[in-house]
Design a protein around this nucleic acid. Structure first.
Lengths: 339, 339
DNA sequence: GTGAAAGCGCTAACAC
DNA sequence: GTGTTAGCGCTTTCAC
């Protein structure tokens, strides 16, 4: 076992409070005793017990992070950004991967509460917000990322402008001459899915293109739904010349469907994807895509968290909206296409 | 604030110990009082304070995970595996991303000690093992993954058979008729880099191919070093027909170098990469690659950790070695190639 | 079957 | 400037 304040105090025949004072650099301590203590601290290689501190201080310097899938590029990068900021400010993170399961999310939230986290950053997949509402009501700082819940009051969040993201993607296709543009978005009870459809519609309307419901498909952000939706689009609407797919995995699925049906990208179908990273630079054709500033989302969330943690008790209810980017690569070609 | 045992006890005019007993289901409690307590627990929505428990029990049910870069596919998948197993066993994880910095690694290790973690899973980048040696000597369960340190005694680890991985890769190239095969491996003071070179040499020797030092290059697992090393290989050795690259990022770099020099894969240079995932299936040419069973590495590490945690005090010093896989795709062609 | 009491390691009034 | 004390919320002997 490692040494405690008491051990050090006994060794020097002084009181624990004095030792505590030098450890924490609080209030004056006689320089001479201070020296002695410092020396003893080193000799016994004292290391403060944060659990005891936490119990006393009612603060663990820990924030919980709950995400659906840590192996997704998006989340791993967000987490990297969070950890970068929080670790520089004396906080550590307890990471929880829900595997996109609502029940697991609940288990984790309860566990985190028991562990007395100081704050929570949450990418929720749940539709029932009772628990998280309780947590917020209790006064624990909570910041939502990625997907936003429907709660009775406003709350803190860091997201990208999903409407704008879609708008950018669809604008791009329209500028290239496409008018019959399909979309594969996410479920409409998730803000990400909803907003991404909204931006699509807005872009079309602004360009006086009639919205054709047969060009709209709803997936679940997973690969198979992208594949299935794309097949539906190709079958239902023979004049489709372009498609915008609102998640990375669905994009992969959609591309497989397009290829299987014997169409070429971008010659037959132009495509804008989402969150397509391609670190190898070898994806062919390279995919024009919306990119979220993941690490910055993480950093912004962490900074907002620090603010909430410090200006204790204040309710900010900030909604930080970062700008998405569009990365123009080859999957839309450069010119007007007709199929 | 949430209710404490004391709150519940006072409400019922009984002692905290009784309440504690029903919460923990320990020793007999009169069924009638038990009922009453259960009811009160619910009414006050009691939630145990794990910090207090931890202080008392000297166990936090938390394991620290320290990795160089959480946004790397390899680590994010390993972590997913770890969390999957540990969360099912009542443990949570504190995640630390060192950004491949030795100093940051040390900071984190000290922090984790202060937070009184019950165990540590570590992918170290450090060459100085003083601190981690101390941690092990203290009796804290430590498991190494990915890269292994040189310590005075044996220790627990979960890795893949890196020698075998290289052997498989090079065998594959030899079978295809290549005899002049380059390698880009990692630093020789890291076990990963060393073992991967070892397997390369073994495969050549077994096939009576003389080892040519000009075909061996050492990178640092990052993209640029793969790029630079490949250029060196192509320049130094005009008869090279194949290359094996021992990390994902270096593979990307190497491919860029090959392309820039105007060579084709696999026609001019056959290539076997490492950890190339390609969820899109769109990388062209698709890369034949060694694949590590990441989630299983994580799961194995977590299970070993649980074992150490439970059979308290025992020293296992197990070295769990998982099998790598080779995924045959297109980057080696199918036949004998000469340049 | 239940309660009283000590103590985990620390901090922070409050004395002196 | 330093020591004494109480207490954070919990578990666990030890009595009764």
């Amino acid at each position: 076992m490692s040494a405690t304040l008491k051990d050090v105090a006994e060794k020097l025949n002084i009181s624990v409070s004095t030792v505590s004072r030098v450890v924490n650099n609080k209030s004056y301590v006689n320089p001479r005793t201070r020296e002695k203590v410092l020396k003893a601290l080193g000799e016994l290689s004292y290391s403060p017990n944060q659990v005891a501190r936490s119990l006393k201080n009612k603060s663990t310097n820990t924030v919980g992070i709950v995400v659906p899938d840590i192996s997704e590029d998006f989340f791993s990068h967000v987490i990297k950004g969070i950890d970068y900021i929080l670790s520089h400010n004396g906080y550590s993170i307890i990471l929880c991967d829900t595997g996109e399961k609502t029940e697991k999310e609940e288990l984790y939230l309860n566990l985190l509460i028991e562990k007395q986290i100081d704050g929570l950053i949450l990418a929720t997949v749940s539709k029932k917000h009772l628990l998280v509402q309780n947590i917020i009501d209790k006064g624990l700082p909570v910041i939502f990322i990625d997907n936003l819940p429907k709660l009775k009051n406003s709350y803190d969040s860091v997201i990208i402008d999903n409407t704008k993201a879609s708008h950018m993607a669809v604008e791009h296709l329209i500028k290239l001459g496409h008018r019959c543009i399909g979309i594969i978005t996410g479920k409409q009870d998730e803000t990400t899915g909803y907003d991404r459809l909204l931006g699509y519609k807005k872009a079309l309307q602004e360009n006086n293109i009639k919205i054709d419901e047969s060009l709209i498909t709803i997936g679940d952000f997973k690969e198979k739904s992208g594949y299935d939706s794309m097949k539906v689009l190709l079958d239902k609407n023979r004049s489709i010349t372009a498609v915008y797919v609102a998640s990375s995995k669905m994009t992969y699925g959609a591309i497989k469907a397009i290829t299987e049906r014997g169409f070429r990208i971008p010659e037959d179908i132009a495509l804008v994807g989402f969150d397509i990273h391609d670190p190898s630079g070898l994806i062919t054709p390279s995919i024009t895509t919306i990119i979220q500033p993941e690490e910055n989302i993480g950093k912004a969330a962490a900074e907002l968290m620090l603010k909430k943690l410090n200006e204790n008790g204040e309710k900010f209810n900030q909604k930080i909206v970062l700008e998405p980017n569009i990365l123009i690569r080859d999957s839309c070609g450069a010119n007007k296409h007709k199929r």
